[in-house]
Structure formats: structure tokens, C-alpha cells
Design a protein around this nucleic acid. Structure first.
Lengths: 126, 126
DNA sequence: CAGAATCCTTCACGATACTG
DNA sequence: CAGTATCGTGAAGGATTCTG
């Protein structure tokens, strides 16, 4: 019996424990940065141009956070003027599969979700 | 040539398009609520007790958002006093697999990530 | 029991200006 | 080029109070 109960509790604990970690990787901009860096290593301003709506501050913050978690690597490739290259780490590459699964889910079910939204919004202004 | 380029661009567009959707499902509390509702249908205050740190306002908001996206269903099962039951929808069940993949990734690589964090933090106060 | 309404604080984020 | 520093704003979220 207590298998179900135990699993439920440990699942909730696991969720609580991993929510913070996932929040660092699945936040507002990380997904875009990660996607871009999976294509190829990239310079700072190159990333800025690739993600037009991101501010310089947010990009810096996102990169620092990903770097701290071992997902991307910051490599100084030149000085005068300084040049920095960001690239995805082996650890970072491993997260691509679950993320892609999630993106696939999103694009697969987007129509049904938009349908559900319309239904929900319609039944509100009655 | 433009295959790589095109894929990169469309990936970034896809990410931008799905970020909003995923944000509704992977936000601060949704994961906990979803995990709990996957176990069994649940009453409002039952959910509150199952997720001790959530406020009433946040739980209401989270449930409304999930309901709007067709992920959970709100069912009034009694009045006087009013009773409401929340349960996961068929659409909601389909998201469990990619989410579990992500949680599995998180728990699998947590040690390496904590290691990376320590290294990063250490090399700062030198 | 299941919320709605209100107040208040925190904080993420953008814009701007400056630097090695 | 690749940032740091500072300021201002809006939105999220908690605590509290009230209601059908």
C-alpha cells in the first residue's frame, strides 16, 4: 500500500529539490541561449544578435548562471580587444535530449492547448 | 549550406514560441501540483496541505493557469459547503513523460552540477 | 470549503551610462 | 569587444482579511 504513498511523497520532495535546478536552466532566456550554443560555439555579441530581444544584462546573467552549473564554458580567445567564446560543455549536451522532448511535446500539443485556451476564455465572458 | 542556418533559425523561433507555453507549465509551482494530481484527483485544500509552502493565492493562480491550458480539470462535486475536485486531463497526462525525463536528468546529473557550482564559486574568492 | 480582494515587499528585467 | 554599475519600473508572490 504505502508504495503509492511513499512514491507520492518522494516525488514531491524530488520536485521541490529539482525545481531550483531546473529553474536555472529553463528560465526565460536559457533555452534560447542553449539552443543557439548547441549549433556552434558563439561570441558574446554574436549571441546578442541571435536573440534580438535579450538585453545585455540578461545575457550576461544567463551565461554566468549556465556557466556556474557547468552547462556552458567561457573561453577567452583573445585580448586587445578582448574576445570571448562560449560553448556548450559535455554536461550541457546531455540536457538537450530531455529539453528537445519537451519542445516536441509543446509543438505537438500546441493546437489542443490553444483550443483549450479559447474554450476557457470564451466561457468567461458569458 | 542553409540547412544548418535554417535549422538554427527555426529552432530559435520555435523556442521563442514555446517558451511562453512551457513557462505556464514549468513555473514555480506547477510541477508540484502536476506531480500531486498525477497520483490522484485532489481537493483544493488537500493540495494546499500536500504542498506546504504554497500560498492560497499562488495555488489558485497555478490551478487556473493549468485549467486554462487544458492540463487540469476543475469539477464541482458538491455545494453547501462547496466542494471542488481537481484532476489531470488526458492532455495533462501526456506531458508527464517529458517532465519525468527532465526530472530524471536533474537527479542523474545533480552531483556533477553541484561539483561544477563548487568549482565556480571557489574560483571566485581567490 | 474554496476562493476573491487588498496591501505590501521583493525582485527580475530593461534602459542607460561607463570601462579595460 | 565584453562586460560592470546604477537606476527605475512592473509584475510575481506572500500575508491578511473577507465571503457565498
Amino acid at each position: 500500500m504505502s508504495d503509492t504513498v511513499h512514491n507520492a511523497e518522494s516525488d514531491l520532495l524530488a520536485v521541490a529539490a529539482h525545481r531550483e535546478l531546473l529553474g536555472q536552466i529553463l528560465d526565460k532566456w536559457s533555452l534560447s541561449v542553449l539552443t543557439r550554443l548547441c549549433e556552434a560555439p558563439c561570441r558574446f555579441n554574436e549571441l546578442r544578435r541571435a536573440i534580438p530581444d535579450i538585453s545585455q544584462k540578461s545575457l550576461t546573467g544567463t551565461l554566468r548562471r549556465l556557466e556556474r552549473n557547468g552547462i556552458v564554458e567561457r573561453r577567452i580567445i583573445g585580448t586587445r580587444p578582448i574576445a570571448v567564446e562560449y560553448r556548450i560543455t559535455p554536461l550541457g549536451k546531455t540536457v538537450r535530449e530531455p529539453i528537445d522532448a519537451l519542445l516536441l511535446w509543446a509543438s505537438t500539443h500546441l493546437p489542443r492547448i490553444e483550443q483549450a485556451r479559447s474554450r476557457f476564455d470564451d466561457t468567461l465572458d458569458e
